[in-house]
Simulated assay, not measured.
Amino acid sequence: MDMIRVEPRCRVLIDNDWAGDPDGLVALAHHAMSPSNTIVGVTSSLTNPMFGPPAGMAQKGANLAGELLRVLKSPEPAVAHPGSDSPFTGQPRDTPAARAIAATAAAGGVLPLVLVCAGPLTNVADALLLDPAVASSLTLAWVGGAAANGEEYNYFTDPAAADFVLGNQELSVWQFPAETYRQVVAPVAELDHAFRNSGAAGAWLWELFNSLDVPDFVKFGPLWCLGDSAPLVVTGLDDATSTFTETRNHPSRRTYTSVDTRLIMADFLAKLRLQQ
């Protein structure tokens, strides 16, 4: 039986450091399984040096994202585009990722375009330098930064890129800061059970989570943060049960202060089971 019909509400261009924390790939799978959004592009960014030497990591991440989409039998996109392995320089860089973002923004479409970035903003900054018109063609949903001035991974992996992107006055930004995205957690036991019992996609994710190469100081606990899934409330789902503050309407500047974790996780786990 087919899933109950859901109409698409937006196009999504998804950028992440796919070779870093695996919660990004969970979020990619969730988007790919969501009929209410259409993936029109995937780009891969640099990783923090804590995950090892940066050289080649953007391409490694692109390979992982592409492999997952193939396992999910997602019709589009065919490939993920890598960005630079080095932080934003302030000088134009014609990377495959920057070109893909600029081309997708320029192509237009009936549905609104949301650029979901749940990693450093390097590729977004490069795309804005390559084609400033990108800013008025999409809304950026960014998982990063912190409402309080504390250390946050996605911001501090490339602070120059974040400052450049967030300083663009033509760009609509919906931000999910650390205080918000860290609310999206799941018990490891629930994830383990779901992955083991959800077909090829679940098996792929289970293997990924069980073969992570992480620094010695990283110790796993009974909960896993799936913060990169927070933007699903504005793409594949709805933010009716989430809260945000808004400082501007045109272009929109929102900071999400809460997201409905139960909604996100229940939807993801149900869609994963439906993949069997």
Rank of each mutant, 00 (worst) to 15 (best):
S74L: 13
F51N: 00
N48M: 01
N168P: 10
G24P: 05
L25W: 01
P159G: 09
Q169I: 10
V26I: 11
L237S: 07
A160H: 07
L223I: 05
A135T: 15
A58T: 01
A125Q: 08
F220N: 13
D238Q: 11
T122C: 03
A147N: 14
L166D: 03
T241I: 12
F209D: 01
D267M: 04
T122H: 01
A189C: 06
R262Q: 15
F244G: 00
E190L: 15
A127Y: 12
S44Y: 03
G167M: 06
L232A: 14
L191F: 02
N154D: 02
D21N: 07
G109C: 06
A29L: 12
K219D: 04
M265D: 03
D23N: 15
D239H: 08
W206Q: 10
P222I: 02
L25G: 02
P35T: 09
Q276W: 10
R248Y: 02
L274K: 10
V79M: 07
R70C: 11
P82N: 09
L129M: 06
V143T: 05
F156R: 02
T139R: 05
P8Y: 08
P35G: 07
A78R: 13
A161P: 13
C10H: 06
A194T: 10
A80H: 03
A97L: 03
P132W: 12
S136L: 09
L263F: 02
G227K: 03
V214A: 14
R9P: 07
L232I: 12
H250A: 12
N168R: 14
A240K: 09
R248V: 04
T261E: 06
G221V: 14
L69K: 09
A147W: 12
P251C: 01
F217Y: 15
D260K: 10
I39N: 01
A178H: 06
D131K: 08
D131V: 08
C225V: 04
V214Q: 14
D238T: 14
S242I: 11
L232G: 05
H81M: 15
Y155Q: 05
P177Y: 06
Q276P: 09
G109Q: 04
L46K: 00
L171R: 14
R99E: 15
G83A: 01
E67S: 15
V116S: 15
G109P: 01
P251E: 02
V134R: 02
V234G: 00
A135H: 15
G90V: 11
A58D: 07
R182M: 06
A102V: 08
T245G: 09
R182A: 04
D23Q: 15
R93C: 08
A146Q: 05
R11I: 00
H193P: 01
A107E: 13
P96E: 11
A105C: 12
P112G: 02
V173R: 01
W18G: 07
V26N: 03
S45K: 04
K219R: 13
V71L: 07
A118S: 13
R254V: 04
Q183C: 07
I14Q: 00
T95C: 07
L191G: 03
M50C: 02
L205A: 14
P132T: 11
D192M: 02
